[in-house]
């Protein structure tokens, strides 16, 4: 793959340590990470503000047109609506007000329903978390199994076939996979329900659909990491001691190889959130994805912005968590100077 090799212009460690002398290294590291995370969130808010408020398109006109079945409002009414949502202010004032409100967790009210945006997102969250977790479990189990068997097997053809699966899986359109699964398992075999969110059976097909691309990623990352780990001196030592292949694979290699796979977790969670847009539509389930689709459909700008910032927050939070947990799980990093 074409891995973008950019480590960013690192501000030199000496300069950083001089400015925050007195703090222990871990606290300094923590502080810098949190500051970076807040910076990204602010920027995500700004980018989404620029995209949604600066680009052409009049949400008030759209809303008025859609809300009253195409009957256009007169200019005075439009102006009144604009004033109500603060859209008549200069952009910089709007930006300042909205940023200040967002800092307090207030993303305004939905234009479509009038509901508080934070409330709408929190209401829609549980079903999405549910399928995301189920999808993640599927991805880890299946992707992990593929990687383990592919790196364990001595049959070259089997390895080749298994390692071709991930690139096949990421080439399939997610919504199409969902529809085909419905066709086969619901309509063809009559085993599982095709739509809805009732009962654990209804969770299986959406979870598989959502987890497939993620599983492909897990398989690729884990297989690469396993291949590298199996060359490590401690594996050679274990082999020389006469430890069995299975034991080496599971007890020595997998435990160490699983760590680098953690670093893609932020990306994975973002993927699952994004995938829920399509999967919830295909399986007509409630959730964040459905909320997104309906908000985009009526140009409900506050809701769309809230979701974008929420997604960025989740991504940033997961990455922060991984960065913090990583040194604990892998002591080699902590002693290595923590330059990342």
């Amino acid at each position: 793959m074409t891995a973008p090799v950019t480590t960013g212009p690192t501000t030199g460690p000496p300069a950083a340590s001089a400015s925050s002398r007195g703090l222990p290294p871990l606290a300094r590291y923590l502080l810098r990470r949190v500051a970076l995370a807040i910076g990204v969130l602010w920027a995500a808010f700004t980018v989404s503000f620029i995209v949604l408020y600066l680009l052409p398109g009049d949400p008030v006109a759209t809303m008025a047109g859609g809300g009253l079945d195409g009957e256009p409002l007169d200019p005075a009414q439009l102006d009144a609506l604009r004033a109500r949502y603060g859209l008549d202010q200069p952009l910089i004032v709007q930006y300042g007000e909205r940023l200040w409100a967002a800092l307090h967790g207030d993303f305004g009210a939905s234009i479509q329903t009038g509901q508080d945006v934070r409330g709408a997102i929190l209401d829609a969250l549980p079903p999405t978390v549910q399928i995301s977790l189920a999808g993640l479990a599927f991805a880890i189990v299946v992707g992990g199994a593929v990687a383990l068997v592919a790196t364990y097997t001595r049959a070259a053809w089997l390895r080749q076939v298994l390692m071709a699966l991930p690139s096949l899986a990421v080439s399939l359109p997610v919504f199409w996979v969902g529809l085909m699964l419905v066709q086969i398992f619901s309509f063809g075999l009559g085993l599982l329900p095709s739509v809805g969110a009732r009962g654990p059976e209804a969770l299986i097909l959406p979870a598989v659909t959502l987890g497939l691309p993620t599983g492909a990623l897990v398989a690729q990352v884990l297989a690469k990491s396993l291949d590298q780990t199996l060359e490590e001196p401690y594996v050679v030592t274990a082999r020389a001691k006469g430890v069995g292949r299975v034991a080496i694979h599971l007890r020595h290699a997998l435990r160490n190889a699983a760590l680098p796979a953690l670093t893609v977790l932020g990306y994975v969670v973002g993927n699952l959130l994004a995938g829920s847009v399509v999967v919830e539509t295909v399986f007509t389930r409630p959730g964040l994805g459905r909320l997104t689709v309906s908000a985009v459909g009526v140009q409900d700008i506050p809701v769309v912005q809230g979701i974008v910032v929420f997604a960025a927050a989740v991504f940033v939070a997961v990455n922060l968590l991984v960065d913090l947990v990583y040194p604990v799980l892998d002591p080699r990093i902590a002693t290595g100077g923590g330059s990342r």
């Binding site: 950019t6 960013g8 212009p9 910076g39 990204v40 920027a43 995500a44 980018v47 989404s48 995209v51 949604l52 680009l55 052409p56 398109g57 973002g270 993927n271 959130l273 994004a274 995938g275 847009v277 399509v278 997104t292 689709v293 908000a295 985009v296 140009q299 409900d300 700008i301 769309v304 912005q305 979701i307 974008v308 997604a311 960025a312 991504f315 940033v316």
Partner: peptide, 25 residues
């Protein structure tokens, strides 16, 4: 520029496209 890129990477591509579609039509 690279900070902007970091932000674009933090937002899932589908959601970013959907935000743009909200604005563009």
């Amino acid at each position: 520029l690279m900070r902007v890129v970091d932000v674009l990477l933090a937002i899932p591509a589908v959601l970013l496209s959907l935000a743009l579609i909200t604005a563009l039509g």
